[in-house]
Design a binder for these strands. Structure first.
Lengths: 332, 332
DNA sequence: GGTACGTGATGAAACGTTTCAATCATCAGG
DNA sequence: CCTGATGATTGAAACGTTTCATCACGTACC
């Protein structure tokens, strides 16, 4: 159907190899024939079939990325960072959304391996699936994103969540708070647990009380409900630290709707610094993760391994988060 | 490097064609040999090379999707809808982000055509680029998403923005507002203009004043700034309708920070009904677009054209948006 | 005039599948 | 015992590239 190199060759009255040369090493072919061939290409509307090219080459120029949830600004920014670097270095990126479902992850891994992606970036749903391990063993370079598995020998890029919790704790303690609520998603999630660990470490030895409120998911609605309960209860913390910004936005809504002023009546600190944090009704203080940077670094590590497998040595990179102070924790 | 069907055949002691049959029509092969072959596949860790398969087949099972901005929840939900249907119908989806840059769009179109995607879903940056047109002419089925170009003969799925503006107008007028501000992005954007048209249509013949405030982009920050100015100025509208939710969130922040109550002092209505609308400090009324449905419909149209090109006839589908009323426009 | 060399162009092989006509084995019916 | 039919398996061709050894043709040099 679509015109092939052969059709172009016929039309231009040259051999098939010459057309290929025009496409891939134009300097190896004389000015005159090059023009003839290019004209034929234009006339026929020839578009090269990269499947055939890659089949012949035995390797592709595309990378696979599987994230947990593209709707999440955290992953979205990471994907953006990866995409930037990939394009810059001449790789195409195939974006996939596992939706935190192992079955979807599995299907995408299969699909990407069948497509012979050159390398893989992934935030695995579970610890390390059979298929992912097989993929690695078969020789597809792999980088773990937002994960760090000491048992697995490959590159990884993650963020130090303990340090993030510590930053939060120091900030709140420094602002004079002595009773702090930590609203968190399931503590079975490493992130949630690590941030709590950091928070506790920051207040260790000080006369500070921490109330842990665990909710079923990192969604605004749960933050709202947790806060309503908290406000009704007897504890009366003066600050709330949330395991992510969505929870914090929920808490903020609860505060506004019950007439509490933020930060005067209650201080509020989120995590992730999503775009909406700055634009919340009361701009939200938050712990920012260098998402774009994570993505760019992960992509660079992967491409390095793809392009120079022999000289490559695996690296586990851990970024430190950063505190962004806005209205919601400002002291008067 | 990676084991091929040939290696499997050797290992299993059968011919190459038989292995292919085991893979593609297992019923055509006897129980015994099938088992032998499957065992060989497992032992060798064989993964089929879909590039070769598609090359031979002359057509792939993947669809391309190019959107303006994946960070935008609107496009994100559409992509999700498309992905759902695509997977369900046995197609893989290649996600691309044009970032509203014609150059990026162009590059992705080229890439996807080289990969021989079976069909294309796209929200074009500009009117209709040379390359997109060429792609269509060469026979790649194409569906326009959130666009509707009467000059172009292909399927499209869009939303009626005039109707959306009308819904908004009727709602606000019905709530008794007689002076309404419309905070909008550049009116050169069709969406912004159409929504204004609808708004005007809703108040036509009534004693209602509309103040149009045009800002440079559909971002919360601009909504905030516009609102600060608006509050300082003399107009004093009782309601603000925003061309999207981000602007509305900005306006909400301005209101909260200047001590205005929503909706008592000023009513607020957004557009898109993004996830955060419901979780805003004051839950935001909004005009909802059936994004998931748009995506699903677009994908179904495309797959229909891909699978039955002869019986297919192009359709231009226009969805109607829907009003979601929350606190921000609730009348006491 | 012969040799060596450089520049362009050529043609065939190979990549890993799928498909399909051809072959082979088996068996039922006459 | 032969014929046909059925079912399983085979082998070769084809898809569209890239690569590489080969070849044709001048040109420069001795």
């Amino acid at each position: 159907m679509a015109p092939s190199i052969k059709d172009v060759a016929e039309r231009a009255g040259v051999s098939l190899g010459t057309v290929s040369n025009v496409l891939n090493r134009p300097d190896k072919v004389s000015e005159a024939t090059r023009e003839v061939v290019l004209a034929a290409i234009a006339e026929l509307g020839f578009v090269r079939n990269s499947q055939a090219a890659q089949l012949r080459a035995g390797t592709s120029r595309s990378l696979g990325l599987i994230v947990l949830d593209l709707a999440n600004p955290f992953f979205h920014d990471i994907a953006r960072g990866i995409e930037d670097v990939a394009t810059e270095l001449g790789y195409a990126l195939v974006l996939c959304n596992s939706d935190e479902q192992a079955a979807r992850e599995d299907r995408y891994l299969q699909l990407l391996e069948e497509q012979r992606v050159r390398g893989m970036l992934i935030t695995p749903v579970g610890p390390m699936s059979e298929r992912l391990d097989a993929l690695r063993r078969r020789g597809t370079p792999t980088v773990l994103v937002d994960r760090h598995d000491p048992r697995v020998d490959c590159c990884s890029v993650a963020v130090d969540d303990v340090a993030g919790g510590e930053l939060a704790g120091e900030h709140l303690v420094g602002a004079g708070h002595r009773r702090i609520a930590y609203v968190t998603g399931p503590l079975s999630l490493r992130q949630c647990k690590d941030r709590l660990t950091g928070l506790r470490r920051a207040v260790a030895g000080l006369d500070v009380t921490i109330d842990v409120i665990e909710v079923p998911a990192l969604k605004a609605r749960h933050g709202y409900e947790a806060a309503r309960e908290l406000f009704d209860g007897g504890g009366r913390p003066t600050a709330v630290f949330c395991a992510n910004d969505l929870l914090a936005l929920g808490v903020l809504r609860a505060a506004v709707s019950t007439g509490r002023r933020v930060p005067e009546d209650i201080a509020l600190l989120g995590y992730d610094d999503i775009e909406f944090a700055a634009d919340a009704a009361v701009p939200l203080s938050s712990v920012r993760q260098p998402t774009l940077h994570i993505g760019r670094t992960a992509a660079r590590l992967l491409v390095e391994e793809c392009d120079h497998p022999e000289s490559h040595s695996h690296q586990q990179i851990m970024f430190r988060p950063e505190l962004v102070v806005r209205e919601s924790t400002r002291v008067a």
